[in-house]
């Protein structure tokens, strides 16, 4: 904890930024197979069911939703770690689906991922130095041993790890330090774009702020672009420039963070935001809470009509019959998919 009072930071000016990554109609369905010996497909889990958005250079786009809404699958499908069922991902104008294996491997240098669980995502038999330098070895960078070690040490310094620990193993580090190792590994290839898949959910409260500050410092220092996947809505408000809310494989609302948080249009976003417990006992009485009943329907059998009609507090008949509500720009840069909004 530093004694200095935090400086108010202005929001980044991204008006003139170009698009670094475009996602168009992306779908990822996992097949459900049945039968012994002869397997045939009897259905599909529609984990990601047609999402489209752009990410601008230098920004942080938050992707939020409940567990099972497909946000992690979306992140991995964008990086082509899962083969998309349908749709395209363009990175700096290039369609990733069109790239061959070699070209794709080259492309991966630009795009990296930080995983949620710092315990499961590091090989326990490799030293920290080997973990961080593995991407370098795969891409044949820094062939000189001494140069490579110096580079790894500089990376460790950058993420706040003592280079003295280069020969230690992951189990010798705490959760927060391990997440720093994962971040150093992601930075090793000097990427432009990083998918942060719940990077702080597994960490203790007092450590979360350390990692978030580190991610913000690295972004301003290296000009990184983040897709920040999370379910902690207060942290998303803090770190993200824009936010996209996912429900059952689809994006239901997207816009500048403050706009979405102050003026949520979709009933799901409204309920999600009102469900966040506020660490201020004084505000308890004044808050109006929208409780949505029930659970997330199974993505293998999404409801007919609007996805959210099983839990929606303001549902009307139209929502059950018509095709999915369209994703429209309700106010400038603020998109929403809801019949209620379209109607009025």
């Amino acid at each position: 904890m530093s004694v200095a009072v935090a400086h108010p930071e202005k929001r980044k000016n991204l008006e003139n930024s170009d698009v670094i990554l475009s996602v168009r109609g992306l779908k990822k369905h996992f097949p459900i197979n049945s039968g012994f010996l002869i397997q045939r497909q009897v259905g599909a889990v529609r984990a990601v069911d047609g999402i489209s958005f752009d990410i601008y250079r230098g920004e942080t786009l938050g992707l939020v939703g409940e567990s099972g809404c497909g946000k992690s699958t979306a992140g991995r499908t964008i990086l082509q770690l899962y083969k998309p069922t349908e749709g395209h991902v363009f990175f700096e104008g290039q369609d990733l689906a069109m790239l061959g294996p070699n070209a794709m491997r080259q492309m991966r240098r630009q795009m990296q991922i930080i995983f949620q669980d710092p315990f499961a995502s590091l090989n326990p038999r490799m030293t920290v130095g080997n973990i961080i330098s593995e991407p370098l070895a795969i891409h044949g960078l820094y062939p000189d041993k001494r140069e490579r070690q110096e580079y790894v040490e500089s990376l460790m310094q950058k993420v706040g790890l003592n280079p003295y620990f280069i020969n230690r193993y992951p189990h010798e580090f705490s959760g927060g330090q391990r997440q720093r190792i994962g971040i150093a590994r992601a930075l090793a290839l000097n990427p432009k774009f990083i998918v942060c898949d719940e990077p702080i959910s597994a960490l203790d409260v007092s450590i979360q702020a350390q990692v978030v500050n580190l991610l913000e410092d690295l972004q301003s220092e290296l000009g990184l672009t983040y897709l920040f996947i999370a379910h902690d809505l207060s942290m998303v408000r803090h770190i993200c420039d824009r936010v996209a809310v996912m429900y059952l494989g689809k994006i239901v609302e997207m816009g500048p963070t403050d706009e979405v948080y102050d003026n949520p249009l979709h009933p799901y976003t409204q309920a999600l935001l009102s469900a966040v417990p506020v660490p201020d006992p004084a505000s308890k009485e004044s808050r109006q809470r929208i409780i949505i009943s029930g659970d997330l329907p199974s993505p293998a059998r999404p409801p007919l009509g609007c996805n959210f009609n099983t839990r929606c507090p303001v549902v009307f008949e139209y929502c059950y019959h018509e095709p999915d509500p369209e994703f429209i720009e309700a106010t400038p840069r603020h998109f929403v998919a809801c019949h209620r909004v379209t109607e009025v």
Binding site: M1, S2, A209, V212, V276
Partner: peptide
Amino acid sequence: SLPRMDGTRTRLTQIEGS
């Protein structure tokens, strides 16, 4: 160390060490 929900974006005050 908690982010604020009211929209003021100040740098989080972190607790050093573990």
